[in-house]
Amino acid sequence: MFKELSILAVVVAFSLLTYWLVEPFAHSQMHAHIETKHFKYTDLPAITKTGNAVAGKELVMGAGACTGCHSIETAGMPAMMPAVDAAASYGVNPPDLSTAGALYDANFLVAMIKNPAHATNLDHKYPADGSKMHPMVAFYGAGGDMDQEVADMVAYLQSIAPKAEEVTPKVAFENACGRCHSMRYKNWTPIGEKGKFKYKKDELRFDASVLDYQDYVVKYMGKLPPDLSMYYRSRGEHFLETFIEDPQSHLKGTAMPRVGVTAESAEKVVEYLRDAADPKHAEREETGKNVMIYMIFFVLFAFLWKKEIWKKLH
């Protein structure tokens, strides 16, 4: 008995050593480790003024010109044109702003309004000499105190947004990532959810629109943003979190913007990605427990059987 256990210890020790070398150790050597900064966006200046939502509404709908490009469905401002046409004009469909106040960090929103290229960490793509401009025009002030005006607009966006905890993972994903990325395991295309079609013709038309849209996005971004259906499994939670927080940290020079979501929204986006790639995780836990209980009994009975048989042999 003691001898068998010592042999087992040797086998287990060598197996664990090999496992440690090819898994945790090798991966730590292959991928740079990036720490999350908890979605604080400390590189952006903190908001200093207290915003006035009423004044903000005037600006968003008027001088700020936001609704010239963005829809705000909850405020009764529908999209001006179909997604494909918007992409033809701007490279990508400007997202609906109904939930922006809840999804995005307030300091980030301020920075986004003042200088979208800088806020999204894309200064390398839009050089200071102005040779190439971000499709979202920066806000240069409506004649008053610009910091106050921007704070007002942010206050307005926050006032119409649902409470952060009411934003579902699906909405978080669709609003923050869905204008660029598709997610076929959730029937999501960058021009919206792909429903059921009665006629093949209509389905083909829809598919063609998606392709048209993607052509514009490729022209804008330089490459097609990948379908994110399986990214939870191919990249893992930690990568996704840190990548959403700042894509440049993993892919230096990438065209994907820093989207500026809050920690809570990022968590929801990741949850949705998990739901697409690994929807059976709860069932796996459950089944796993039951199988283990069964296996413990198997071990027990196997042990008793062995003891019984070997009584006559020892």
């Binding site: 090819v22 499994r233 191919s234 836990e285 796993g288 196997a302 042990f303 059987w305 019984e308 070997w310």
Partner: peptide
């Protein structure tokens, strides 16, 4: 009977991997 006892222990280890630690067998890149 001894084989089966060893097999039963092995299966506990095996199903632990199946449910909780399968990453080494299913490469993320794939």
């Amino acid at each position: 009977s001894k084989d089966m006892f060893v097999v039963s222990i092995f299966l506990v280890f095996f199903f632990y991997l199946v449910f909780w630690n399968y990453g080494f067998a299913m490469d993320p890149v794939n």
